[in-house]
């Protein structure tokens, strides 16, 4: 069954997800009770520092990581845990991942033709050799590369081109959901813009849905519809993009926003450093949970914190009324 919310179709639903790693008797909870829905056609961003668990969530969705508790539902159907071969194939085909390091994600000894075709081969998703070649050419062209590049090797391409090969490799599977794990962090400013434009083009033309994993909020603001901020395996705030930037509530969200350097010397030079230090926070009261504070805006809080956040929110709203252009 497909659930809907305000007429928006939920494509992927993560419910009470827990991922725990064990290493030499040590137990590490990488993802703690994560809950979120991704709507069809939107770009949903997961933002946090390295080690915060964002990649682990992405990898759990494409079944590269084992989940210890909770459900991942794709179009209402559970896709974590044991699956039949047939169902597993369906998941892998529909959900593709693009990685941060274009070099590491491509087999250096394989031709571009093979790199792009790998998924097609694995699932035998082509009718004939001719059909396969046509699919590869189409995928390469869609990312601005030429069919004659097929016989070349990854190292003969620049970083930006390699990332486009990575995208072609995902696109050739005709997926519905793409998990893009920091796809532009390793790229130059000018090439970043090219790759982002390309990803947006696919979103428009093919109604693709993205889970965009990033640590840079400036890119996320331009690129995504909703943002979840994750800290130490825990989603601490989730809101539509402009709402989050206008009314950031959780102190960790604030410190992330503050830390992103703005390309403006006057702003940067007058900025003060805010360090998020959990140990200095008042953590009294009962256990916090992710609660809705405004429509679509959730924050990780207990009742005491909720009260504080409500007051803060009210102040911010008042301030904005009084200073519409400030």
């Amino acid at each position: 069954m497909v659930s809907t919310n305000n007429e928006k179709e939920v494509l992927l639903s993560v419910k009470h997800l827990e991922v725990t790693f064990y290493n030499k008797k040590r137990r590490f909870r990488a993802v703690k009770n994560a809950n979120f829905d991704i709507y069809k056609g939107e770009t949903f961003a997961l933002v946090g520092e390295s080690g915060s668990g964002k990649t682990t969530i992405g990898r759990s969705i494409i079944r590269l990581n084992h989940t210890s508790d909770g459900d991942i539902l794709y179009k209402g159907k559970k896709i974590n845990g044991k699956l039949s071969k047939e169902d597993e194939k369906e998941v892998v085909r529909n959900i593709q991942m693009i990685f941060q390091d274009p070099a590491a994600s491509l087999n250096e000894r394989a031709t571009i033709d093979y790199c792009v075709s790998e998924g097609l081969y694995n699932f035998h998703l082509y009718e004939s050799e001719e059909d396969r070649l046509q699919k590869v050419d189409q995928a390469l062209e869609s990312v601005g590369l030429l069919p004659e590049h097929k016989s070349r090797y990854p190292h003969e391409f620049s970083g930006g081109q390699r990332q486009r090969i990575g995208i072609a490799r995902a696109m050739v599977m005709e997926p519905e959901l793409i998990i893009a794990d920091e796809p532009i962090s390793a790229l130059d400013v000018s090439i970043r813009a090219q790759v982002l434009n390309l990803m947006n083009k696919f979103k428009e033309e093919r109604g693709l849905t993205y889970l965009f994993i990033a640590h840079d909020l400036s890119v996320v603001r331009y690129f995504s519809d909703r943002i979840a901020v994750i800290h130490k395996g825990r989603i601490v705030e989730l809101a539509p993009t402009e709402e989050l930037f206008a009314f950031p509530l959780h102190p960790y969200t604030l410190s992330l926003l503050q830390a992103v350097p703005m390309p403006d010397p006057r702003i940067e030079k007058s900025k003060e450093l805010v360090i998020y230090d959990e140990s200095k926070r008042d953590l009294s009261g009962e256990k916090p949970i992710l609660q809705e504070i405004r429509p679509g805006h959730f924050v990780f809080a207990n009742d005491r914190e909720m009260k504080e956040y409500r007051e803060k929110l009210q102040e911010m709203i008042e301030f904005k009324k009084e200073h519409p252009n400030a």
Binding site: F245, A246, P263, I267, F319
Partner: peptide, 19 residues
């Protein structure tokens, strides 16, 4: 007018202004 644009962006973001 880069500065004006950035000020507008950050003001909308409400993180550099007092609130």
């Amino acid at each position: 007018n880069l500065h004006d644009k950035m000020v507008r962006l950050t003001a909308k973001g409400g993180i550099y202004g007092e609130h």
